[in-house]
């Protein structure tokens, strides 16, 4: 069986987001290691297909574009039925999804439809004895599991920001694929009937390359301007995060919570401000590439995982940091 791979490239608002490039990069890597072709399935709203063609530049030999207007592209059963059908028809050996909320959902549904083995939140992979072996953090980052997925098809979701997108020239055959909207009917599925847009100006904490997170050390929600100013200074790549203590206190919304019972993130840069570093918080961010801690208590456990630490009062340190970030970024 050849190592042909399929990447489920979720595209939104006619923009290829980082995760789409990452899944294509992983799919391409596996296909090359095993000797096979890489296909990208671009799935998104109107205008997305055009943007998805960019993925040829990350190694896609073939791109199927599925553009669905309105709420159709949000229908999870439709996506899963379509992906499962394509997998069966073409016979892909490995299918790679992003570990975003939607990507993980479509992956789990597809795995269930095909009774295929699946591993989520993969952080590395290897071909061993003609099977795919992957590593994934378990027990909230307190252990790592090496898992072997045999036969085909097998499905993985890859953790965001772990695999750097690598430009590569694929054969680049681009086709529009018709999706039978009726194909998910007859199944007793769920229907997405509405969407309420969140903040448009910021990425969500799970996918952003930079996260600025605040904890109880900020003293109250009225001081969050300090966190927002720093994120603003860091540019559009930065998202806001929070500890559970401040979410439970109602200072910040649930969708910003990082940790065991919040989002698991692994940005290139995680800045923890006034966060003590409880094990449940570390669970959600310890695999970040670089961690910065700002805390007035030099013994705070967060310093134990930090690459860089500043000891001090947030009310003095943050304004100085924000100003210095603006200066160095503007300095070019």
């Amino acid at each position: 069986m050849s190592w042909s791979t399929l990447a489920f490239a979720q595209v939104s608002q006619a923009v290829v987001n980082g995760t789409a490039r990452e899944v294509v990069t992983v799919a391409r890597g596996i296909a090359q290691a095993g000797g096979g072709e890489t296909t990208a399935l671009v799935w998104g709203p109107g205008g997305a297909a055009e943007a998805g063609r960019e993925l040829v530049g990350f190694g896609a030999d073939k791109v199927y574009c599925c553009e669905l207007p309105g709420l159709e592209w949000r229908q999870p059963d439709l996506a899963a039925v379509t992906v499962a059908k394509l997998i069966k028809e073409v016979g892909y050996r490995v299918v790679v999804f992003p570990s975003t909320a939607r990507g993980a959902d479509v992956a789990a549904r597809t795995a269930a439809l095909l009774s295929a083995p699946m591993a989520s939140n993969v952080v590395s992979w290897e071909l061993v004895d003609d099977t795919l072996e992957v590593v994934r953090p378990v027990f909230a980052g307190r252990a790592t599991a090496t898992v072997r997925l045999s036969g085909g098809p097998v499905l993985i979701t890859v953790r965001s920001n772990v695999f750097s997108p690598r430009p590569a020239q694929g054969a680049g055959v681009v086709e529009t694929m018709a999706v039978e909207a009726s194909s998910a009917e007859g199944r007793r599925g769920v229907r997405v009937t509405g969407f309420e847009e969140g903040r448009r100006d910021r990425l969500s904490v799970g996918e952003a390359p930079i996260v600025v997170s605040g904890g109880r050390g900020l003293g109250g929600p009225e001081n969050w301007g300090l966190i927002e100013d720093l994120a603003e200074a860091l540019g559009p790549d930065a998202a806001l995060g929070a500890s559970r203590a401040v979410v439970d206190a109602g200072w910040r919304p649930h969708d910003e919570q990082v940790g065991q019972t919040g989002k698991t993130v692994s940005p290139n840069l995680y800045i923890a401000v006034g966060i003590s570093g409880a094990i449940q918080h570390l669970a959600g961010m310890r695999t970040s590439k670089r961690i910065v801690a700002i805390n007035r208590d030099p013994r705070a456990p967060i310093f134990g995982v930090a690459d860089y630490g500043v000891v001090g009062d947030v009310f003095e340190v943050l304004p100085a940091l924000t100003e210095a970030v603006r200066e160095v970024r503007e300095g070019g």
Binding site: L149, V311, V317
Partner: peptide, 26 residues
């Protein structure tokens, strides 16, 4: 078809660098 090959403790993280205190360190 899904086989656990190994369960391991993650490698320990090396000590970080404390840059100092207050606005200068920022």
């Amino acid at each position: 078809r899904l086989e656990l090959v190994a369960l391991e403790e993650p490698p320990p993280k090396g000590a970080g660098r404390i840059l100092g205190e207050g606005p200068d360190a920022a």
